[in-house]
Amino acid sequence: MKILLIGESRDNKVLETTYELTGFAGAAAAESSLFFVGSPHDLPAVSGRLYLADVAACGEYNPDLHRDLIVRTVAEENPDAVVFLHSSYGWDLAPRVAAALKVAQISEVVGLVEGGFEVGCCNGKMRRTVKPATARVVLTIQSGAFPVNKEGGSPQVVALAPPVASGRVIFAGYEAAEARAIDLGRAEVIVSAGRGVGKKDNIPLIAALAKALGGELGASRPVVDAGWIEHSHQVGTTGQSVAPKLYVACGISGAIQHLAGMKKSDFIVAINKDKDAPIGEIADVLIVADVLQFVPALTAKL
């Protein structure tokens, strides 16, 4: 199999997640080349051909233009698969490329099976095996599903001629993440609240357990979106990535974006009523119980 990987850059720097793509190429035993809109001064450490479009000419975010460059590269490379990360860049760009190439896109790939792909569904609770009906396929791969491959090498750079800047979506700048009141990355213990906590009034129960364990309070996305806990406490791909000695997930079902931000924790305890919740997949201990009963009982014994 021959594949074209779509690397990612932000602010002239290679994103580390690009090396999950090379990991996927290794898992698929595929011959790979890489397409990359980025800076010529910070290239991904990969071997093989690297199709480089200079971000200075292409713009930081210009989906129509990035799509056209990828379509051009596909014509040159003739790959069986065009592989993106299942990230904000991949979500935005992969379907545009699939539509332009008139081929199937298979999203959120977590594994490879004979003649097809294993993908997540139902909020990560279930899996589907999907087979494309088109000869070529566009894939987005789930972060963390394939090992990082940073073996390096020096790429053979193929510079793509800077296109005439055009496009209907005009990039107008970044808005930095809110200043973090707390740095969860340094915490040894994190006790996080999820939707299963029920309501804002119950958050102090979780905070009390965090305090009793000498740790910090974390939160899953729905709890932050609902305004129960500030964003600076959010754990996951759109919040902070953490790896404490102990992570206690209270009423968190385990959306993939949350798992990606905390699964490197040394020891994971999950408290959930739902025995099938995806958090159980990565927890060292899953307590099947009502968080509102269990958490105060645990706090009382500490």
């Binding site: 904000s88 209907r168 979506v169 700048g173 930095a176 964003h231 902070q240």
Partner: peptide, 16 residues
């Protein structure tokens, strides 16, 4: 004017 959510709390502003 749209604010797009990227990774790690970063947001991208675009106009269309």
């Amino acid at each position: 004017t749209a604010k797009r959510e990227l990774e790690g709390g970063l947001k991208g502003i675009v106009k269309l």
